[in-house]
Structures are given as structure tokens and as C-alpha cells.
Design a protein around this nucleic acid. Structure first.
Length: 284
DNA sequence: CATAGATCCTGTATGC
DNA sequence: TGCATACAGGATCTAT
């Protein structure tokens, strides 16, 4: 569920509430979320207990916790239904929400990781210097996202132009560019006035440039609004929804009038996922 | 190598 | 009300 803007909203909340605090206790029971760690939840306890939190960094839909004096980080991916909540109330006595997998307790407050579907992951991973920053090794195969300062669209377009896949599928490929999910792919295609079924190798360089800029713009706008909430599955660390849902042009708007031309928005299934578009506007 | 499809899960909404 | 089905903001593994 969460895409780049939602993850960034959560990251900012974590920086605000948890940075500088010491992890007094790591609690939780072993779960599928820790499947990447050889010792399960113990790997996380070994890394964090007694450690001070330096901050949180992000690439695409992945974020990671930096702990003072540690060469490894805790990588966090929310999958479809992951939530991170910060509670300022006195930590230990709080009831455990259903589907809570991990809790970090601090002097002031606690962090809770909740994930009903368990598609998310919490992975201890060594940091390695890549260019101007330190990235977890587990993220080596994930491409830069369009909001990174070092982002360069040129090699991305070169590769995209050699692909026979549909351009929407290419936008969703985290190994080419990261951060874009099903919502912002559809919003970007609408903004660029392109139909998602066009093949990558059929789209000229200029239109690829437009499409990537539209993706970045859609995500930047969404961050301003605190992300997109359709239901209670996405909330920020304080439990509040984001308001970009009000600004969506096509996603989830089947049969509603197009904001540009009033033609009803259509929904089709593309490679197994919903695709919302305006047949009149998106025909380049 | 590039690509399509199956798979991991639970919760909710819809239709009969 | 009960039950069956479809669908969901994603990544990864497998087969072709």
C-alpha cells in the first residue's frame, strides 16, 4: 500500500519523534516480518537494545533506521499493509494492537510495527558507502528514486526504451526507478497524457522525460499533503491520514468524470493490477 | 537476459 | 445472517 510519499511521511514522523532517543527495550514475538534475519527478532534486539537512534533514511519505498555507532541498519519495508506508530504514552503498559510484530521502547514513548498481511519486512543489513551516502546492502538491487538529489533520468530512459513491456509496468519496476507504486503510476500517466499500455520501446525520449517528470511531480505533491489514505490502512506515525486522496485525478475514480474533459474514468486490469485512466485524455 | 505469472497473507466489500 | 468470491497502496521467486 504505501508508496514513496507515504513512506516519506512516516519517515519524517519518525525523525521527529524517535531520533536521539535510546532504545531501552525491543519486544515482540518472532514473525514472518523478520524472515530475512538469521536469528529472527534476536538479530534486531542485538542491533538496537541499548543503542541511541541517529535518524532514518529512505530510498524509494524502503527506509532504514540508523543507530549510533553501528555499521548495520534496520531496514523497514511496509509491504501492502504495514504501519509504524509512535505512542507518546507510557510505553510498557500500552495494549498490543492486533498484528503488532515489534515494539521499540524509549525513555519517552514507543515505536510500534503493525502489519496484518505480513508482506512487509524488517531486515538488519550492513551499510555500504555508495556515492554520497550509506545504503543497506539489502537494497543494492533497488534503483534510485526520482526525488533523490543524484537522480539522473538519462540511463533510466535508455533502458526503458529498450524494453517491450508496457510503460506502466516499467514505472512499477523498482530495479529501474524506485518509489512509484500503483497510485502514482496512474497519476503520472494521466499527468503526462499517456496510456499505460504503450510499449516502452514505442515511447520517444521526450515523452519518457515527460513521464518521469510527471512521476516525480505527483509524488512531490503527495508528500505536501501527507500521502494518500483510502482507508485506515495508511496513516502517519501519529495515526492521522494523508489528504492527497482528494487530489487524485484518476486512481480509484472509475466512472467519475475526468477532471479535464468530463469523460468517465475507466478501470481495466493490466498485468494483474487495476489501471485507471481517461480514454479521451490519455491517447498519445 | 527479459518477461509473465504465481506466491506470500489478512481484512473488507460485494453479491447471492 | 451466512457463505463464497473478488480485490487491495508490493516484492520476490520460478518458469519460460
Amino acid at each position: 500500500m504505501p508508496e514513496l510519499p507515504e513512506v516519506e511521511t512516516i519517515r519524517r514522523g519518525l525523525v521527529l519523534h524517535a531520533s536521539g532517543q535510546e532504545v531501552l527495550r525491543v519486544s515482540g514475538r518472532d514473525s514472518r516480518l523478520f524472515r530475512d534475519n538469521p536469528a529472527g527478532i534476536e538479530s534486531i534486539r542485538d542491533l538496537l537494545e541499548g543503542c541511541r537512534i541517529e535518524g532514518f533514511d529512505r530510498r524509494g519505498k524502503f527506509m532504514w533506521l540508523l543507530a549510533q555507532g553501528q555499521s548495520s541498519s534496520l531496514m523497514i519495508h511496509l509491504g501492502m499493509s504495514g504501519q509504524v506508530r509512535f505512542e507518546t504514552a507510557d510505553s510498557g503498559e500500552l495494549p498490543r494492537p492486533k498484528h503488532e510484530h515489534l515494539r521499540l521502547e524509549f525513555e519517552r514513548g514507543s515505536l510500534s510495527f503493525v502489519d496484518p498481511r505480513m508482506f512487509g519486512r524488517l531486515t538488519v543489513s550492513g551499510l555500504e558507502q555508495r556515492g554520497s551516502r550509506a545504503i543497506p546492502q539489502a537494497l543494492a538491487h533497488i534503483a534510485m528514486d526520482p526525488l533523490e538529489p543524484d537522480w539522473d533520468p538519462v540511463p533510466v530512459i535508455q533502458r526503458a526504451r529498450r524494453s517491450r513491456r508496457k510503460i506502466k509496468t516499467i514505472l512499477l519496476d523498482q530495479q529501474l526507478l524506485s518509489g512509484v507504486g500503483n497510485i502514482y503510476a496512474d497519476e503520472a500517466l494521466f499527468r503526462a497524457r499517456l496510456h499505460g499500455s504503450i510499449r516502452g520501446d514505442e515511447l520517444p525520449v521526450e515523452l519518457w522525460t515527460d513521464l518521469l517528470e510527471a512521476s516525480a511531480a505527483a509524488m512531490r505533491d503527495a508528500i505536501e499533503e501527507g500521502g494518500t489514505s483510502f482507508d485506515s490502512l495508511y496513516v502517519n506515525v501519529e495515526g492521522n491520514p494523508g489528504y492527497f486522496g482528494n487530489s487524485l485525478a484518476v486512481y480509484g475514480r472509475a466512472n467519475h468524470p475526468c477532471l479535464r474533459c468530463n469523460t468517465p474514468i475507466e478501470r481495466v486490469v493490466l498485468e494483474g493490477r487495476s489501471h485507471f485512466y481517461c480514454r479521451h485524455c490519455q491517447n498519445r
